[in-house]
């Protein structure tokens, strides 16, 4: 049976900008995915716990506050510590071009900045699933 792709959309840290995360959540739902939205102000630990219990295929992180260089790798590392290697991790938000190579190297597989059409996100997820 073809089960829907499950995605955790999470906002780590104290960042209160949630419009982008909600836009992404809605467009993934409209593309037929099950989106678990955990709301604002999540610690990396909470995000990892939710990802594991929900057994998601994708962890999608949104940050506009500038804390991405710290928080994105933190989530990736905690997932690795839990032995998770079959979840696709992506990120987005207001992130300077210059920071993206570091984030990719840290294990975030793609970073989407303002203006990216949501259909690109949908396509990227479908093409890069790890299950």
């Amino acid at each position: 049976m073809d089960r829907p792709i499950r995605v955790l959309v999470a906002k780590p840290g104290l960042d209160g900008h949630d419009r982008g995360a909600k836009v992404i959540a809605r467009s993934l739902r409209d593309a037929g995915m099950e989106v678990i939205y955990t709301g604002l102000r999540q610690t990396p630990e909470q995000i990892v716990a939710a990802a594991i219990q929900e057994d998601v295929d994708v962890v999608a992180l949104s940050i506009l506050s500038g804390a991405h260089n710290h928080l994105f790798p933190k989530v990736v590392n905690l997932l690795r510590e839990e032995g998770v290697d079959d979840m696709l991790i992506i990120g987005g938000g207001v992130i300077p071009e210059d920071d993206i190579p570091f984030l990719i190297e840290s294990g975030v597989e793609s970073v989407f900045t303002p203006g990216t059409p949501t259909k690109d996100v949908v396509e990227f997820i479908k093409e890069n699933l790890k299950r």
Binding site: P4, A25, R26, R29, E34, V35, I36, G39, Q46, A50
Partner: peptide, 18 residues
Amino acid sequence: FSGGAILGDRIRMNDLSL
């Protein structure tokens, strides 16, 4: 219509996650 869903109940339970 899409077969997708937004599952938002966890928002109210986040501090139980850990």
